[in-house]
Amino acid sequence: MLLTVSGPPGSGKSTTAAGLAEALDLDHVSGGDIFREMAAERDMTPVEFNEHAETDDRIDRELDRRLHEIATTREDVVIESRLAGWLAGDAADVRIWLDAPIEVRAARIADREDKDVDRAREETRRREESEAKRYREYYDIPIADLSIYDVVYNTARWGPESVLESIVSLVEAYDPDLDEGKHPVEGVRYDF
């Protein structure tokens, strides 16, 4: 089984993906972990590497290529990244999108990164705009189009345990023989 967990910063991707992997005895692959590995390969901190990525499109493309390769060659894995659902395409059994209002996400990020909520909100807004532009430019992915996802959750309305419990139930009820409701990923250019 291949599951993808996607969503904007602060939506609960990491918590949910790790919980899904544990609950369903699947491997967990995090785009953030791969990004940190790539930074270490270049002897940079993640912050330095992120700043470098803003001016070097090869970084995003390498990260996305690695995730796409994992999604199309491995089984029994939960892949977590903003583009995981798009990069996995039809190889994914269940594609999940998590979201929450910017105020909620900014508060989570501020708490996690020990920074001011206003600063977290502005950084998050700028990051999302930049990423949406790059995803469209690089791959023709309209990140705001949620029609490819099987499950979309507003994680501000339920706690992490409730979100996880609900998604685990949905995944366990998944019937791979029913493909009538699958949302194909079309028109994406994988220009890695």
Results as ranks from 00 to 15, higher is better:
107 A>D: 06
182 K>G: 11
155 T>W: 08
177 D>L: 14
161 E>Q: 03
153 Y>N: 06
180 E>H: 13
122 E>C: 09
149 Y>D: 12
146 L>F: 02
105 R>F: 03
149 Y>E: 13
158 W>E: 04
130 S>K: 06
159 G>Y: 00
152 V>H: 10
120 A>M: 05
131 E>R: 02
109 I>E: 07
107 A>E: 14
143 I>R: 15
175 D>H: 06
110 A>V: 11
158 W>K: 06
114 D>L: 04
117 V>A: 02
135 Y>R: 06
180 E>V: 01
112 R>H: 04
122 E>H: 13
167 I>E: 08
118 D>W: 03
106 A>T: 12
165 E>Q: 09
168 V>E: 00
111 D>E: 12
173 A>V: 13
132 A>I: 01
177 D>H: 13
183 H>L: 01
115 K>E: 12
129 E>M: 10
153 Y>F: 11
150 D>Y: 07
102 I>S: 07
157 R>D: 01
157 R>L: 15
166 S>R: 08
141 I>M: 05
108 R>H: 11
104 V>Q: 10
125 R>N: 11
113 E>Q: 07
178 L>T: 14
174 Y>L: 01
141 I>E: 07
106 A>N: 05
160 P>K: 00
148 I>W: 00
181 G>E: 14
169 S>G: 09
138 Y>T: 08
126 R>G: 09
126 R>N: 14
172 E>R: 15
178 L>R: 15
117 V>M: 12
162 S>M: 09
142 P>E: 10
168 V>T: 05
126 R>S: 14
115 K>S: 04
134 R>D: 12
123 E>H: 03
129 E>A: 07
172 E>M: 08
132 A>N: 04
151 V>H: 07
184 P>H: 02
110 A>N: 05
145 D>Q: 03
172 E>P: 00
175 D>R: 09
151 V>A: 07
125 R>C: 03
139 Y>L: 03
131 E>S: 05
128 E>R: 00
103 E>G: 04
174 Y>E: 03
157 R>E: 08
148 I>Q: 04
165 E>R: 13
136 R>H: 13
161 E>F: 05
108 R>Y: 13
165 E>G: 03
138 Y>V: 04
111 D>K: 02
109 I>F: 07
177 D>K: 10
180 E>D: 15
115 K>P: 04
152 V>P: 15
119 R>E: 13
178 L>N: 15
111 D>H: 02
171 V>L: 01
112 R>N: 01
155 T>H: 02
147 S>G: 12
146 L>I: 08
169 S>V: 12
161 E>C: 05
158 W>S: 04
103 E>F: 11
156 A>F: 06
148 I>A: 00
119 R>C: 08
186 E>L: 14
139 Y>T: 07
122 E>P: 15
170 L>Y: 07
167 I>L: 02
104 V>L: 03
112 R>M: 05
149 Y>V: 08
143 I>K: 14
141 I>C: 03
177 D>F: 15
180 E>P: 14
106 A>R: 00
114 D>P: 13
183 H>R: 12
140 D>W: 09
137 E>Q: 13
118 D>V: 08
165 E>C: 02
115 K>F: 11
170 L>V: 15
175 D>F: 06
113 E>I: 06
174 Y>Q: 06
150 D>L: 05
110 A>S: 08
124 T>I: 06
141 I>V: 12
147 S>Q: 12
161 E>V: 11
149 Y>A: 09
113 E>C: 05
144 A>D: 11
126 R>T: 15
168 V>A: 07
146 L>S: 10
133 K>G: 14
123 E>S: 10
167 I>S: 04
